[in-house]
């Protein structure tokens, strides 16, 4: 309603560009100028180049030269012909995502709620839980998993193996991976804890008190207040998790290793990169559709009423 009115207004009285507005524009553009140049060169231009690589043959002779292909998707067809492991890797990527995303996000929410409650040594606990933000990347993780420090010693590997032998391989393998690197997965939830924590602190305490007075118990307040108010954070965290989990892995290694391989090269690598980009976009789309805010108007309305009453 309001929006429509605004649009109508804008039509009736076309905006005059004043000197003041011009100055604001200039200041705005001045602020973002470095980024604007950077995004132009290192993102937009490189994107176009990368697409060109994927749809042409790259010949390296005194610089990069492009030659047209026999047919448009030749590089992509080549990728699937030469990289026989790619479909398996894609399958692994997807199952890993399906397994890890809920674990990381729900674990982060639990930890954030624990850290947000009235506890002693809050600073100390927080320091421990933010620690992975510092070290949970790169070769350190590889070295630690290599030394078997990534799995919890309390879970016996044999019991797990016998239990998993009931299931077919494509389910059993990811689950085994999941358990053997459970700590490393949990280590990846540092930033997510942080986001949930700062979100939880913004939920007005009066909401919980009002619910208590109305006779709601902890379980009910969790589902009726915490989860709805945390929904934007859940979406944000899910997106963040997908992005960071996708930033490394076997497909990424494949992209960087094929660049220098004979008979593959830039075009090949660029084609894989674009397949991967498409895959991530699809996952993000699914995440977005799952966690977006649907008809939350009711909840907001009720919250407002509760706040007013309180």
């Amino acid at each position: 309603m309001n929006k429509r009115k605004k649009k109508a207004d804008a039509k009736k009285y076309p905006r005059r560009i004043t000197k003041r507005m011009l100055r604001e524009w200039a200041q705005g553009y001045f602020s973002i100028l470095p980024w604007l140049i950077g995004i132009g060169i290192f993102f937009v231009y490189s994107m176009i180049r990368s697409l060109q690589f994927a749809f042409n043959t790259v010949i390296l002779s005194g610089g990069v030269q492009l030659e047209p292909l026999n047919y448009t998707f030749e590089n992509f067809a080549n990728v699937f012909a030469k990289e026989t492991s790619l479909p398996i890797l894609i399958g692994e990527y997807l199952t890993n995502m399906v397994l890890r995303l809920p674990i990381i996000v729900s674990f982060a929410l639990i930890i954030a709620m624990l850290l947000n409650s009235r506890i002693r040594f809050r600073l100390g606990f927080r320091m421990i839980f933010f620690l992975p933000v510092i070290i949970a990347t790169g070769p350190v993780m590889a070295k630690l998993t290599g030394q078997g420090a990534g799995s919890i010693p309390l879970i016996s590997q044999e019991t797990l193996a016998t239990f998993l032998s009931i299931f077919p391989d494509y389910i059993a393998n990811p689950v085994r991976d999941l358990f053997s690197s459970l700590i490393m997965i949990l280590w990846n939830s540092g930033i997510q804890i942080l986001v949930f924590l700062s979100g939880l602190q913004k939920v007005p305490f009066t909401l919980y008190e009002a619910a208590k007075i109305d006779g709601a118990n902890g379980w009910e307040t969790f589902w009726k207040i915490t989860i709805p108010t945390m929904k934007p954070m859940i979406l944000l965290n899910a997106v963040y998790t997908v992005v960071t989990q996708s930033a490394s892995g076997s497909i990424v290694d494949l992209i960087s290793s094929t660049v220098t391989e004979v008979g593959k090269g830039y075009s090949h690598s660029a084609a894989i990169a674009w397949i991967y980009a498409l895959l991530i976009s699809l996952v993000l789309l699914v995440v977005f559709l799952l966690f977006r805010e649907r008809s939350d108007k009711n909840v907001k309305y009720e919250t407002k009423r509760v706040v007013k009453r309180g």
Binding site: F42, S46, M47, V243, S256, Y266, A270, Y276, A277
Partner: peptide, 21 residues
């Protein structure tokens, strides 16, 4: 929107052209 897109898309898609540049 461009800023968000540059965050969401994998770096690998542009890292090679960037290096060449």
């Amino acid at each position: 929107g461009l800023l968000l897109l540059s965050y969401l898309l994998p770096v690998q898609a542009v890292s090679m052209p960037n290096f060449l540049l």
